[in-house]
Each structure stands twice: as C-alpha cells, then as structure tokens.
C-alpha cells in the first residue's frame, strides 16, 4: 500500500513537472518586462492623479498647486499610455 502510494506521488509529481516539455503550448503569451513596468507606472500615475484630487478636496493642496500638479501628471499619464500603445502594438520588448 505504502509502495503504491509512493509510486503514485512520484509519478504525479514527475508528470506535473515534465508536462510543459511534453505538451508544448507554444505561444504562452504573457507580458514582457517593459509592458509590466509601464503598466505599473500607469497605475501609479492614475493613483497619483486621484490622490492629488483628494488632497485638493480635503484642503491639503492649494488650488494653484493642484492645477500645476494635475496638468503635469496628466501629461505624464498620456505619455505612458502612448508608450504602452507602442509596446503593445510594436515588436515584443526585449
């Protein structure tokens, strides 16, 4: 019984590990590092824009400061979106 169970676990583990070599799925897809980095930066930028709005509305940031900051953040965000377009549409990043 023990032997049978040991063999079962052994075969199961080996099959699980070796499966990618046996059944090659080929195009695994997945994001490249460049895209992941830009995604992270985009998300951070969006969050920053919303945080700045929150800081303005809770009175921590003056309206003048917010205007300058918001314009800069939005320009940076659009730049990130364009770069993301380039990465997604263009050749895979290295």
């Amino acid at each position: 019984m023990q032997f049978f169970l040991v063999m079962l676990v052994l075969c199961g583990a080996t099959a699980l590990m070796a499966s990618p070599l046996i059944w090659r799925s080929g195009a695994a897809g997945g994001k490249g590092a460049e895209e992941a980095a830009l995604e992270a930066a985009k998300e951070a930028k969006f969050r920053e824009i919303r945080d700045a709005e929150h800081d303005l509305r809770t009175g921590k940031l003056s309206r003048e400061d917010h205007q300058v900051l918001d314009a800069a953040l939005r320009a940076e965000a659009i730049d990130l979106l364009r770069r993301l377009d380039a990465v997604r549409g263009g050749p895979a990043a290295t």
């Binding site: 969006f46 314009a71 800069a72 939005r74 320009a75 979106l81």
Partner: peptide, 24 residues
C-alpha cells in the same frame, strides 16, 4: 518652487485619459 505648468492636453487626449482612468 512652483514648477512650470505643463501644456494642456488636447481634447482627444484628455478624453482618452479620463476614459482609461474610469476603466482602471
């Protein structure tokens, strides 16, 4: 010090950004 203001986004860019942020 106050940073120089960034140029305003084009209406198309502004719309796209808002839409992306809404989606996010």
């Amino acid at each position: 010090a106050p940073a120089p203001a960034a140029p305003a986004l084009s209406p198309a860019d502004a719309r796209r950004l808002e839409a992306e942020m809404e989606r996010w």
